[in-house]
Write a protein that binds this DNA or RNA. Sequence first.
RNA 1: GCCCUGGUAGUAUAGUCCGGCCUAGUAUAGGCGGCUGUCACCCGCCUGACCCGGGUUCAAAUCCCGGCCAGGGCGCCA
Length: 445
Amino acid sequence: MKVEKRMKIDDLGCWRRTHYSAEITPELDGKEVILLGWVRDIRDLGGIRFIILQDREGTVQITVPRDEADEQTLKKTGLLQRQYCIGVKGVVRAMAKAPRGVEVLPKKVKILAVAKQPLPIDVTGRTPADIDVRLDARVLDLRRDENQAIFRIRHKILEAVRTFLSKKGFLEVHTPKIIASATEGGAALFPIAYFEREAFLAQSPQLYKEQLTMDFEKVYEIGPTFRAEKSHTRRHLTEFISIDIEEAFATADDVMKVAEELMHHVCRVVKENCQKELKVLKHTVEVPSLPFKRITYDEIIEELRGGGFKIEWGEDIPTAAYRHLGKVHPYFYFITEWPTRLKPFYIKPKDDDPERSEGFDLMWHWIEIASGGTRVHDKKLLIRRLKEQGLHPESFKYHLQTFDYGMPPHAGWAIGLERLVMIHTGRKNIREVVFYPRDRFRLTP
RNA sequence: GCCCUGGUAGUAUAGUCCGGCCUAGUAUAGGCGGCUGUCACCCGCCUGACCCGGGUUCAAAUCCCGGCCAGGGCGCCA
């Protein structure tokens, strides 16, 4: 056991960053800079010491030659260990032998925080760790290059979605996540203690966003949703972010166009702006051509029959069959005209064929990434559909009452953000693309 | 909820089938020492582990039972 060294922690004082690591280029030769970040790696050769400093923009080499550095700096840099938070004031030197042809010679070093050794995971990524171990040490894990890339792409996607929807005239809204009763039936809700009453975490903004079409016509929400499903797969979470839109005076066809244009836009933005990140992830993004294929449920059943899957009309499609579809349709496609009985009560049955609905799913390979449709806006029909699905219209009193005030015909969809990020990062486990994932078994950190 | 697989140092693994040769091997991280151009630096020395409980046996990391935990799949879904 190592004797704890008395480590003096320095104050940030008046030090402010002048450059990010990535901004240190050979052209800055001779310039004094202040860098703030973390020690990623140390290579001490005896007469010369290399410290790799990492910040949010990348890394830069701090070089400490014994015969060039003053004693204080030599001593201080000798104390450094991986993941110490440090500040470096020094001079840039163009140096062909250094990474990126540039290094910083420190004049003064501040240790702002220390890190306990040995660390639970290797942030350089050389010694791999299992996802469970990584998630337990998530803050360290997120410093890894791969995660920096994933979450930058995630950010870019969100930015692209907001820009796109805003330009299309959608207003960003936020609906309550604490609700009094089930919104859709089906998926299980998490009950919570709400003072002296029981409440639930919202499984979807569905009913609220529909209501808001009465006032704002085109709305979208990007927010958390909660599902108390005991799912245990690489594509399910108990808490995830849903991108929802709802549009008045529109049908499934109209909002499918919005969805495919959005996918096209997002792919383009990621492809154009995230090459560095994609390279780290060894992944590529193809911009899809428009329009996406639209395949009816009936056609899908027929296709699956050809692939050896015998699915009765009106049955849901099992995962194995979806995997087969993913091979036949290797990119985005819609499955349309789902049997009404397979869709929630608010999905509109076709006028001329009520067994079939105006509900659709947006697929990517074998994974469902969005679900939507034309909604029922006729109160009587909505009540009938509620009953058909075994739900009690009384529990939807406040929702149903809004249909008395001129509910416009409307349509919408919901996209799972995490699945969208999986597509753009090539990650196979949804937990990889969430900062602090929550699943059936994980509630910490 | 069901099914399959697994649990060995901080991390990742070898060994487990076919019990004894394991005083548990390796890499990396960590400690100490050396090294002036590293970039997975290198070299030497050192620290550090068989998930928990029960059973079988002369003998258990290894076989059996239970538990806990993890990974994957199914169902459900986004």
